[in-house]
Design a protein around this nucleic acid. Structure first.
Lengths: 248, 248
DNA sequence: GTTTTTCTTGACGACTCGTCAACAATTGAC
DNA sequence: GTCAATTGTTGACGAGTCGTCAAGAAAAAC
């Protein structure tokens, strides 16, 4: 059935096109300003056609989020490939988180949107599962490092935590700090001048607190983070360019 | 000018009434569903009158957030009044954070809303400043504990951090975990069964990592947290009942 | 070349937001 | 107590959403 495939290809091409148009609107002006009429008027199709592709606005947002979470996943994969101690790899993942918010700010903002209950609810279960899968993948990468560390006796997890719960703490501190950094009304005004540095210090202290070997001085940690952050730069573009892939 | 005051009182009464009607809508159905028409129809006033009180929907949301952040602040104040070691007081603030999300979930959700850039932007600078002030107050309470700890040699902050940046880490891990807990699609599905317990473990480890004296075992920390959490319960209602205060 | 199916369209109904002219109530002067 | 002036309230309105769907266009099948 060559023809069916061609149709599907066409559908997918169009879906990609819609997302290409919708993304900058969502990122720059927010969910409110992303309107179907506007997306339609910026394309060669009418509104009805867009509704054929995506049953509602929310679905478009979820689709964008899937793309963005894929970028994060690839970044995590790259970071996890560092061939050093498990602790160093964990640190590399922290660097990847930093990198993601700093250099893929658009993707970070899109990721944020799906935390909005009302957006989440209105989209199809199918796409919700896609998101869950992305999230699971990212968690899997980090939890894998933790498991390696435990297996090689470089780390002992407190007994009441699963490896994923262990990861959760780092997830929370990174995610939380990034949200606060990007959305808190003037952090400097309340005494927080360099939130990124602060979180590096906290993460290093937390890793040391769990006695993840080898222990590190804060200064060494910060320098290593800087290096890791820069090492992601060259890999960044090839990751971004893969973005136009299956969407539906 | 008794009459002017009476007018103002009437205005304030009405503002309070509007917020009373708007809050459950915002909490239960989200910003999208909070419509001026709907608020109006649930009151004895017309839409135009509501616009006299609040120039737009966003302003209502900010006003609600101010109320909610006040609840948080009072909770923080209560928690900070524990008469024990600085570390114990810090822990009490962690408990207050937990308590806030668990028992003032509505307020927590309202607080969330103002992180939305498009809501924030559309509201008046005046009310934005009110929010900033609330945020500053909360930070002040916690940073105060940190300063006390430093002053009494129970804690040494890494040199590259201000006391507020030190607090920021705990803010981030608590806030981040709570957002994830309340908005992440099925945490248990990716291996996180008890996020609250996980964050307690992390916070204890972080405090130990910074060598905040006296050091604590994780189990002791968790038990102390439970006790602190419960000790807030009786104070809770008196806090909530103060809520109907200056709004405009 | 004609019929059938499939795809595309934009006008439509229902609902927003925020405004503002017209109407109602209150105040103050006499 | 009356009447003008001021102040407050109203809901119809314009502009702009979302999501639908009958009608028209294009493609496919015959």
């Amino acid at each position: 059935m060559v023809k069916l495939t061609r149709k599907q290809k066409e559908m997918e091409r169009r879906a990609t096109e819609i997302l290409r148009v919708a993304r900058p609107i969502l990122v720059a002006e927010g969910f409110q300003c992303l309107s179907m009429d506007r997306v339609a008027s910026q394309m060669e199709y009418a509104k009805g056609t867009i509704y054929k592709q995506f049953p509602n606005k929310e679905e478009i947002v979820l689709a964008l989020a899937v793309q963005s979470m894929e970028v994060r996943r690839r970044l995590f994969e790259q970071a996890a490939m560092v061939a050093e101690s498990s602790r160093y790899r964990m640190m590399a993942l922290g660097a990847a988180c930093e990198f993601f918010t700093q250099h893929c700010t658009d993707d970070f903002l899109v990721e944020q949107c799906i935390r909005n209950q009302s957006i989440w609810e209105k989209s199809s279960e199918q796409r919700q599962n896609l998101i869950r899968q992305c999230e699971g993948n990212c968690m899997g990468i980090v939890a894998g490092i933790v498991r390696d560390a435990v297996a090689s006796n470089e780390l002992v997890i407190p007994e009441s935590l699963t490896p994923e719960e262990f990861v959760f703490g780092f997830w929370a501190i990174n995610y939380g700090s990034q949200i606060l950094t990007y959305s808190s009304p003037s952090l400097p005004a309340i005494g927080i001048n360099d939130p990124f540095n602060a979180i590096r210090v906290h993460c290093c202290t937390l890793l040391n607190g769990f006695a993840w070997q080898p222990a590190m001085l804060i200064l060494d940690y910060i320098n290593a983070m800087k290096a890791l952050n820069e090492s992601l730069q060259p890999k960044f573009w090839s990751i971004k360019n893969q973005q136009n892939q299956s969407v539906n």
